[in-house]
Design a protein around this nucleic acid. Structure first.
Lengths: 231, 231
DNA sequence: TTCTATATTTCGTCA
DNA sequence: TGACGAAGTATAGAA
C-alpha cells in the first residue's frame, strides 16, 4: 500500500465524468491497483477513486501540464472496463509504501439474517398463537423471509427488513399475490416487519391490507442470550 | 489528517456489531474525527469505520489487553449516536499527520439530472410530435421525472433511469395508477427510458403496457454542444 | 457469470 | 430537520 499526500487535480472518465480542482489530498494506492482520493472530511466515500483491478502508470506531463506546474501524471486504467482516472500531481508532500499482507476480514452480527433468526425464534411477538412454518420459504419468484401460521391457522407471509422502505412492501405484495393463487395456502395474511418503517411504506402497506410491525432488535437480542457469546 | 499503519484489532458496536481480528492495516483519522480502517485490497469501502462527527480518545490498555500485547487503545465515539469503534493497537509501523485544508469538491457530469435535462430538450427523440409539459412533475406520491404530450395530445409520463431496473418499472407503475385516476390527465401513456434496460424490467414493463426506450447519452450530449464546454 | 437483495450504505435535494 | 431518491453505489450470496 502506497500513501501519498499531494497537491493534485483529478479527472475521472467512465460511467460518468467528474473533475476535482487543484487541492491537497490523500492518495491511497492499494496492492490490486485500486486508487482512493480522500479529503480531510466527509465520510468513508472517497472524492474520487478507481475500482480494482486496475493498473497505475506514472507518465511525464505534457508541455501544457508542465507549464501549469504539473510534476507528474498518474494514469489509472481499470483492467476490465474503460474507466480511467487521471491524477495530475503538482506537489508531493508525503510518499511512503508499506507491506500489509492479506486481511482476515470482518465478522458481523446484527444484519438481516440475525434479525430473521431471532424473529423466527420469537415468532409469537407478532401475535399470540403464532407458530413458525419455515424461514426462507421458496416461491416461484423468490424466497419469503418467514412463513408462519396465526392462531386461526391462517398462513402468514412475513417480509423482514432492517429499514422498512417502499420496495419492501412491493416485494411482499408480489409474494402475496402469487401465494393467494394457491388454494392450499390462500387466504394469506401479510406482515411487514422492520426496525423502522418509513411513512410512505406504511401508507402503501396499509392500503394493501398488509400489517406493519416495528421490531426492537436490542430487546430481541436480549431475550436470546446466545448473541452475548459471539465475541 | 493522521495516517497510521498498525497491527491492530478493531471492534464496532452500534447499528450492528462487527469485529476485525489482528492484522496490519491503514488507519485514517480525519479532521472531523471520523476514522477509516482499510486493508490493502477491496474497493473504496473500508473494512470498518466511524462516521463524523466523532471524537477519538487514546486510552491506556487495561491489564488483559496489555498482557495480550496491546500498546494503545483508541476509543472513537460518534458525537450524535451511540456508535463506537474501538481500535486495539499492537504495533505502530507508521504515524504521520498532515494539513490538507478544505476541499473544493467534485464536479460531475452524466448523472440522472443531466440525462433528464438533455431528454427534456430533445423530447422528440421519444416520438414525432412530442412536446414537453414539465420536468419533475409533482404528484401526491412523488415527482414524475418528465411529463410530456404526444402527437395526439395524450399525456405521457416518463420515468428516467441510468440503469433500467425492475424497481424503476414499479415506480412508474405507481405514478401511472395514480395519474390515471385523474380525469384531467387520463389516459396517461407510460415510457420507461434508460441507458440500458434489464430484460426482466423490459418484460414487466411491456406486460403493463409501458413502452421501453434505450437512450444514447453520448449521442444526446453530442446534439447539445453545451456539454463540451463543461471542463 | 449474472442476477438479486442488503447496506453501520453515503449523498444530495426538497418539503 | 426528516424524508425520499440516486449512486461511477459496493458487496455478498444464489441461480
Amino acid at each position: 500500500m502506497r500513501l501519498v499526500i499531494a497537491r493534485c487535480s483529478v479527472d475521472y472518465e467512465g460511467r460518468l465524468r467528474a473533475h476535482l480542482p487543484l487541492a491537497t489530498r490523500l492518495l491511497v494506492v492499494k496492492a490490486d491497483g485500486s486508487v482512493l482520493v480522500h479529503s480531510d472530511g466527509g465520510s468513508y466515500k472517497p472524492l474520487n477513486w478507481m475500482s480494482p483491478p486496475a493498473v497505475l502508470r506514472a507518465v511525464e506531463p505534457d508541455e501544457d501540464d508542465r507549464e501549469a506546474g504539473v510534476e507528474s501524471v498518474w494514469r489509472v486504467q481499470n483492467a476490465k472496463s474503460d474507466d480511467r482516472l487521471i491524477v495530475r500531481i503538482h506537489e508531493t508532500i508525503h510518499d511512503s509504501t508499506h507491506e500489509l499482507g492479506v486481511d482476515p476480514g470482518l465478522i458481523k452480527d446484527g444484519v438481516e439474517a440475525d434479525l430473521q433468526r431471532l424473529l423466527a425464534e420469537q415468532i409469537d411477538t407478532l401475535g399470540a398463537g403464532f407458530s413458525l412454518v419455515r424461514r426462507e420459504y421458496m416461491t416461484a419468484i423468490g424466497p419469503v423471509d418467514i412463513l408462519a401460521r396465526d392462531a386461526e391457522g391462517r398462513t402468514v407471509a412475513i417480509e423482514l427488513k432492517r429499514r422498512g422502505d417502499i420496495d419492501g412492501v412491493e416485494q411482499l405484495t408480489r409474494y402475496l399475490e402469487l401465494m393467494n393463487r394457491d388454494p392450499l395456502l390462500a387466504p394469506v395474511r401479510g406482515i411487514f416487519a422492520a426496525q423502522k418503517i418509513k411513512p410512505q411504506a406504511r401508507t402503501l402497506a396499509t392500503d394493501r391490507g398488509i400489517e406493519c410491525v416495528t421490531l426492537d432488535y436490542d430487546q430481541m437480542r436480549g431475550v436470546d442470550d446466545s448473541a452475548s457469546r459471539l465475541f
